[in-house]
């Protein structure tokens, strides 16, 4: 009996360490999703620690065997769903005073990501402790590294730059309508504003590479997220009483190209392009109509059997 305790201690410790490390790494990768808020970091690190502890004790619980303890994992899943709610609520309440809004889609995406990360942490802790139990410390180390790499790959996701070309565009006015190349953005009634926009504004155009990308940036939530990221990176001259300076992304209805206009604090086109490219593709916006070909053919056959 006395022999067992240090053995399990090693198993659990291996799992907890691997899980916690995963959480720290994931926290670092996605700084864009959650800028600032140090207290949030602490909360998430601690929850990550708990998640990894839960994942790590599963193996000793089964070995013992204490299956009742293993069922506690189900309880943990419930707990982590709560994280999603907490995240959503926090961001939604901050949203009200945000000058440039994230948008509900972005918030939902962030909340979902935070929940998923804890499952990854739990999984990492589980497989690491599994390896520690049956393969010893060396195996645990190897498995932990693989699991961390897997988590990093899994959580990195697509960015706008991988589905669209982002090119500089020209701001101009057609009468009162502000144009980004050929895309009409908004009607600006005050002449002084028009002059200021022409002087200080920046614009880029997003050219979708295929139909899937076009459908993705067609999504309002996705465009909102792009405008938000651009405003975070470059700053914005917008204030409560200058709604004209709100960064805005509108599409060309014929080509599906999207024009983005922003009044940045830093007038740096390279930065703007980088910010747009770095915006994550939101899970709720991602769609793949091109891959629908096979199932659509089936329906066509049913509708028109003689074709």
């Amino acid at each position: 009996m006395f022999n067992l305790i240090p053995e399990y201690l090693l198993v659990i410790l291996a799992g907890v360490v691997a899980g916690s490390v995963t959480r720290v790494i994931l926290l670092r990768i996605d700084y864009r999703q959650y800028p600032g808020y140090p207290h949030g970091y602490l909360g998430h690190l601690f929850l990550g620690f708990i998640a990894s502890a839960l994942g790590a004790v599963a193996i000793p619980a089964i070995m013992e065997p204490d299956f009742a303890a293993a069922t506690f994992l189900a309880l943990a899943a419930q707990q982590f769903r709560e994280i999603r709610n907490i995240e959503r609520r926090t961001l939604e309440s901050l949203e009200r005073t945000e000058l440039v809004r994230r948008g509900l889609d972005y918030i939902e995406g962030i909340a979902r990501t935070f929940e998923a990360r804890n499952y990854l942490v739990m999984g990492t802790a589980f497989v690491t402790s599994l390896a520690a139990q049956f393969g010893g410390p060396a195996a645990a180390f190897a498995v932990a590294i693989v699991a961390v790499l897997f988590s990093m790959y899994f959580m990195s996701g697509q960015v706008v730059g991988s589905i669209c070309d982002v090119v500089p565009a020209r701001l101009s006015f057609q009468g009162a309508v502000m144009m980004v190349d050929e895309i009409g953005i908004m009607n600006v009634g005050i002449k002084e504003m028009r002059e200021k926009i022409l002087r200080d504004g920046l614009a880029v155009k997003l050219k979708p590479r295929d139909g899937n990308a076009r459908a993705t940036i067609h999504d309002i939530g996705q465009r909102n997220a792009i405008a938000f990221t651009a405003a975070v990176v470059l700053g914005t001259k917008k204030d409560v009483d200058i709604p004209e300076f709100t960064p805005m992304a509108r599409k060309n209805p014929d080509t599906g190209e999207v024009g983005l206009y922003i009044m940045p604090v830093e007038q740096d086109m390279e930065q703007l392009i980088a910010a747009v490219k770095l915006t994550p593709v939101l899970e709720s916006a991602r769609s793949k109509p091109l891959q629908a070909g096979v199932s659509i053919k089936e329906v066509k056959k049913q509708v028109n059997p003689h074709e």
Binding site: G175, A176, M186, N187, V188, G189, I190, K191, E192, M193, V240, D241, I242, P243, E244
Partner: peptide, 25 residues
């Protein structure tokens, strides 16, 4: 017209739009 619209837009936190027929909303 421009001046009044500018002031009003600041006061009301609203956007001024030009209808092109001599009216700003």
């Amino acid at each position: 017209q421009q001046k009044v619209a500018d002031y009003l837009s600041r006061i009301l936190d609203a956007t001024a739009h030009d209808l092109g027929n001599g009216s700003l909303i």
